[in-house]
Design a protein around this nucleic acid. Structure first.
Lengths: 343, 343
DNA sequence: AATTGTTATTAAAACGTTTTTTGACATAGC
DNA sequence: GCTATGTCAAAAAACGTTTTAATAACAATT
């Protein structure tokens, strides 16, 4: 049906080896006439090489597997989008798997993708609460013998390729911004503190407090589940402590705060300032627009793919590399100068 | 490195044909001992068949290409997520391409995916403003000789496989809902009316007006670009006409209305009702939550994949099938009884 | 005229599978 | 004792490429 190299060879009156040599522009002596004949035949037949066959012999498919928890999570959707763009620019295709944060599904996809001959795998997965699950993934990754790039903190070891955000600095600049506006009683709506990234955000937050000589009050830190609806149940605890600002450890929870505060007729930023983390698409659409700590996803995605491409071209040294990116503060309308007298 | 069928054969002391027969559980006479030996060897070596090689001989890769305009568009991200889930349940993997609404990129991915031996392609693309572009895509699709499933209205012909929403009904139920609340001057913030889907939404809207004996006033229909920021420029025109409700043809533009109305101190739904279309994730988070027309993406995704799977198993009759799904009205807090006296 | 060297092309092996055909050996029927 | 009939297993071809080694043709050197 689809023309193969044989068809081109027959049409051009040469052997298939010649066709291959010409198509790949190999540095072997070939007469101009032969080249022209082959190119013409290929053109006329609309010949396109079968990548399956090529992959079988070259062991390269120019395909990268991407395993993320959930593409309906807009953060990952945005990341995926940037990764796909970066991949395409470097000549790679992306094959997608949703792990739903399940170690089984992660392992499933690791194998599935390896079976399909992907050149590398990008894995977005934070630690599992059960260390055994993490170990399972680690084992699977090791057994694969394929480059794996982590874009979240699955393993604590430094000996893996990774592209990460500096979460400490993220927490730090968020706190610094609020402190600069005069806030001293700042609530934290944290993510699960079992996860390294959130520990680090909190540590950065504390560092900023310390530098401003504000005592750290653990009662002002509550834990959420990263979803919007986790804001409502814990908000009263913070309000009771008279916080003048709340640092939500991701934008989704900040949205939850918006909803609940609005229900309570507490105004943002007049009565309380809110700052988020991630800079999702909607943060700029919301009313008032959300001040937040942005992750430079485009740069990170580019870094992921160019590093992988480097590794695959075998231009990387033996050392594995962890690249850490700096977050960027986006000041919008949800934070303002502190107006409460209570220091 | 990775064990192959040969390694299993050697270890089990049989031929590779036997290994293949056993692994695929073929209905051929094989002694239980042989089977056991093969299975054991495979298990011990951790053998997993190379899907590239299998694809080369069977012409099936269990991979489906998905071409969408933009995965950072949360509507498509959600659809992609459902499609991936449905695909995985049926044993397929999804390979992803962002077309950015460019015909060139669409054609690029059509070929790229075909080269990689995908079994089918899912194409989310509305018509191009330039009919020549549409023709280009059509030609590429035809030349592929691979099943292509449309999940948007690229071609007007009925002779393609497609899974679509009943946009007419969507427009109809949105209007009906507002009319039921007593609204008679209803503004439309439409999408580009060059696109069939929006024409149909508008037609459904008009139908509902007609049934309620409300004259259709073209001055109440303005065109947006589907993005949030297209609301602000056209809102004054609608307000001047004293609309008591606005039907935004997608949720993103409804969000734009929220922002602009809030800036103008016009309250939703007290002063004006707003209804959207799509039911994006955020519509339930917003304050007030957005009444909207939902697309049953999970059902549609399942329908896409099960139909494709049917076609690929060659169980489909010769006829191509267009499946149309009914939208669902989600009544939330952004619409209320009309309080203006102006009829 | 024999050797060496270029240049252009091809043959053949390999990649890891599936699948069809062939073959070896027992057992049963005549 | 010979042919038919079953079992089981292996051989071999095929899928569409790349790549290395081989070869052929011819010119240039001795």
């Amino acid at each position: 049906m689809r023309p193969t190299i044989k068809d081109v060879a027959r049409k051009a009156g040469v052997s298939i080896s010649t066709v291959s040599l010409v198509m790949n522009d190999r540095p072997v002596p070939l007469s101009p006439e032969t080249k022209r004949a082959v190119l013409e035949a290929a053109q006329e037949l609309g010949y396109r090489p079968n990548q399956l066959a090529i992959g079988l012999v070259t062991k390269k498919t120019n395909t990268v597997g991407l395993i993320i928890p959930d593409n309906s999570n807009i953060f990952f959707a945005a990341y995926t989008n940037h990764l796909e763009t970066a991949a395409n620019e470097l000549g790679y295709s992306l094959i997608l798997g949703n792990s739903n944060n399940s170690a089984e599904k992660t392992v499933h996809y690791l194998h599935l993708f390896a079976d399909r001959g992907v050149d590398a795998i990008i894995l977005a997965q934070s630690e599992f609460s059960d260390p055994e699950m993490t170990q399972k993934c680690l084992d699977a990754v090791r057994s694969l013998r394929i480059p794996v790039m982590l874009i979240d903190r699955l393993f604590r070891t430094r000996s893996t390729e990774a592209v990460l955000l500096d979460h400490f600095e993220g927490g730090y600049i968020a706190a610094q911004h609020l402190i600069g506006l005069g806030h001293r009683r700042i609530g934290c709506l944290s993510g699960p503190l079992g996860l390294t990234s959130f520990q680090e955000r909190l540590a950065g937050f504390c560092q900023a407090l310390e530098e401003a000589d504000i005592p750290y009050d653990p009662a002002l830190v509550v834990e959420g589940n990263l979803l919007a609806d986790s804001a409502a149940p814990v908000l009263p605890a913070l309000l009771k402590r008279h916080v003048s600002a709340i640092f939500a450890f991701n934008d989704m929870m900040a949205y939850g705060l918006y909803k609940e505060l609005s229900r309570m007729k507490i105004r943002i930023p007049e009565d309380i300032s809110v700052i988020g983390f991630d800079d999702l698409f909607f943060s700029d659409v919301l009313q008032p627009s959300l001040t937040t700590v942005a992750q430079p996803l485009d740069k990170m995605a580019k870094a992921v793919m160019s590093r992988l491409s480097q590794i695959l071209r075998e231009e990387a040294g033996g050392e594995s590399l962890t690249q850490v990116f700096r977050p960027v503060l986006k000041v919008r309308d949800s934070t303002s100068v502190c107006r409460t007298e209570t220091a």
